[in-house]
Simulated scan of single mutants.
Amino acid sequence: MNDDTPAWWHLLDDDAQAAARMITQVLPKPIRHMRPERTRALLNTAPPDEPITPLDHVRQLIVPTRAGTIRARLYRADSAGGDGSTPALVYLHGGGFVLGTLDGADELCRAIAAGSGWTVVSLDYRLAPENPYPAALEDCIDGYEWLTRTAPELGIDPGRIAVGGDSAGGNLAAALCLYRRDERSSLPVTQVLAYPAVDGTFTAPSWSEFADAPLLSTADARWCWHRYVGPGHGADDHRAAPMRAESLRGLPPALVLTAEVDPIRDDAEAYAARLRRDGVAVSLTRYAGVFHGFFTEIGVFAQAKQAVEEVCLYLRTGVAPHP
């Protein structure tokens, strides 16, 4: 290891080291130094012609929202829903509120649908900075509400709808649960949060320890956060930063996944600890040897396969329907 090698490099497994090298080749400079449309062109790649997990039932949807419509994609495994009704996971992709597409989460949603027997509905919410907070959250709130109303038409059990997401999508999933609790609406049966971005203070130790980690640096995370919250909103708004909620009591059970080499890690694990202290059932797993973003990279990280298997087992065996 030479003097220029970060201290955390030896923590990465072989898959993660190879992926980190590839990222440095794809991104000519940090995303905070590029226009969002340029970064999207570099990182928002289309899925392969032959998916890793083929499914016969993949359907494009148009979902009405208060601002117009958003796109969504429904995934169902061939073996699911023999009685015509399955539980469903509403999935919210990551991307720092600025990046991310349905295509970027396509392989992950396929794998979860195939492995769990649940229908997965992936929502394509509006992005910042063109649409700052609360646009993305409103799209997710409206999309979730629409699904609860139309569930029977889609072959979904309305009493067994969960929400999940990674990174920015984990933030939105957590915020959606807070919104529905505060509004006294029916709650998701569970929340699946992969390294969720739940705080806007950037004070936890991992923000310094992994400040220059692959894919998401602390400086880039700050840049994304400020593109999202825009003027007039701060770190104390609990629907922008769920960690700022006065209480997390009454929220749905949670499965929280984190990556070892990730500046967001400590915030996500602190959120899991707060949920537990406030009486919410929580399962927390830290995946060693990987960095932020690994969960959606099916076929790239061995740890991604393990994480998907954990999510699928959790959905199959650990989620009860609404009473």
Rank of each mutant, 00 (worst) to 15 (best):
N2D: 13
D3N: 04
D4W: 13
T5V: 14
D13S: 14
A19Y: 06
K29Q: 15
K29V: 12
H33G: 07
R35E: 07
T39M: 06
A41T: 14
A41K: 14
N44H: 14
T45P: 00
T45M: 13
P51L: 12
P54H: 05
H57M: 09
Q60E: 15
V63P: 09
T69G: 03
R71Y: 07
L74Y: 13
Y75D: 05
A80E: 12
G82Y: 08
Y91S: 05
H93R: 10
H93I: 01
G96A: 11
V98Y: 02
L99K: 04
G100W: 09
D103Y: 04
E107F: 02
L108D: 04
C109Q: 03
I112T: 09
S116P: 08
W118Q: 08
S122H: 08
A128N: 02
A135V: 01
A135R: 06
D142Q: 06
D142M: 03
E145Y: 04
P152W: 06
G159V: 02
A162K: 03
A162Q: 08
V163G: 00
N171R: 09
A174E: 11
Y179S: 12
V189H: 10
A194I: 10
P196A: 06
P196I: 05
G200R: 12
T201F: 11
F202G: 11
F202R: 13
T203D: 14
A204Y: 07
A211S: 15
L216V: 05
A221H: 06
R222C: 07
R227V: 01
R239K: 13
R239V: 11
R244C: 01
A245M: 11
E246H: 13
L248C: 08
R249D: 03
G250W: 00
P253R: 02
T258S: 13
A259L: 10
E260P: 00
V261H: 03
R265H: 10
D266G: 11
D267R: 02
A268R: 02
A272G: 11
L275R: 03
L275V: 03
Y287Q: 04
F291T: 12
F294P: 00
E297R: 15
F301S: 02
F301P: 00
A307S: 10
E309Y: 00
E310Q: 14
V311M: 14
V319N: 01
